[in-house]
């Protein structure tokens, strides 16, 4: 190797600045972590923690099968959860369509009122967790599944609207021009050139949101908005671990099944 000619390699310009930036990022990160960990309360594992973990584990191993067919039992709770997510997803998909067009940036007239405000409204909706929305809707329509439906329906608009808007932004404008040239009016242009392009994407995103909503609906019961969450929180507070176990299994089976079906449908659509 010693025979190789030695080259002087120029150091790339701006290298000093790059190193400085890296060091700066590291310092900031370190500061964040010092701050975060300093704020943790004293961590002591209670003596009971081990016992409880074992009890929970036992409960999951030996689930309370009797609860499955009980009146207002597991099956009922899961069906309720599913119904809340189906209806909530449907409502949000319908409500989101105008939002999607509103928040999409356009070639001709993007601006604050057409794109910016739409995006802001969507971020605003996204901020409210579905559980908090559910608490508010419970005040309005009383406790029960309907409050859960409304909470999911409203909350999902935030995320779906963003995805729908991206879909609208990605359309091919050629067919639109072709339809205008045939003398079609605005609605006909929308139905014949824009909707066929965006609909598959809309449906696929809606199904994806449905998968998330099934998870969301399974916890709404914790605050009284229907679904399997109510018996679950009750079992948790009364330390009925076999029942917690069976409900947990039920949720896992339901969510996995929905993921599989929805994933299959989404693949078929695209």
């Amino acid at each position: 190797m010693s025979q190789l000619p030695t080259h002087t390699v120029d150091k790339p310009k701006g290298r000093g600045k790059k190193i400085f930036n890296r060091v700066l990022i590291l310092v900031i990160l370190a500061a964040i972590y010092v701050w975060a960990f300093a704020g943790i309360e004293e961590f002591e594992i209670k003596e009971t923690a081990g016992q409880i973990s074992k009890a929970i584990f036992d409960g999951i191993i030996h689930p309370d099968w009797a609860f499955v067919n009980e009146e207002e039992g597991l099956i009922f709770g899961l069906i309720d959860t599913l119904a809340i997510s189906i209806l909530g997803t449907f409502i949000s998909a319908i409500l989101t369509i105008p939002f999607g067009f509103w928040a999409a940036s356009r070639r001709d007239k993007s601006g604050f009122f057409v794109t910016g405000l739409g995006r802001f409204v969507l971020s605003f909706i996204r901020v409210f967790p579905e559980v908090v929305l559910a608490i508010i809707f419970i005040k309005a329509v009383g406790p029960g599944s309907f409050a859960g439906v409304l909470a999911l329906g409203l909350h999902s608009i935030g995320m779906l609207g963003k995805l729908f808007a991206e879909e609208v932004e990605a359309i091919d404008h050629g067919p639109r021009e072709a339809l205008i040239a045939t003398g079609a009016n605005r609605i006909q242009v929308l139905v014949y050139s824009v909707l066929p392009q965006v609909l598959p994407g809309f449906i696929s995103y809606t199904l994806y949101r449905f998968e998330l909503n099934v998870r969301g609906a399974s916890i709404l019961g914790i605050i009284g908005a229907g679904g399997i969450g109510a018996p679950l929180i009750f079992a948790l507070t009364s330390r009925n671990w076999p029942r917690v176990g069976v409900i947990l299994l039920g949720i896992i089976v339901l969510v996995s099944a929905i993921d599989l079906i929805s994933g299959y449908l989404r693949k078929k659509i695209v």
Binding site: A178, G183, N185, Y192, S193, P196
Partner: peptide, 22 residues
Amino acid sequence: NLRHIRRDIGMIFQNFNLVKRS
């Protein structure tokens, strides 16, 4: 009125401008 005049004029484009999924 404009749409009625356009209705009588067909147009063909370089990129065909068909809705590909339909």
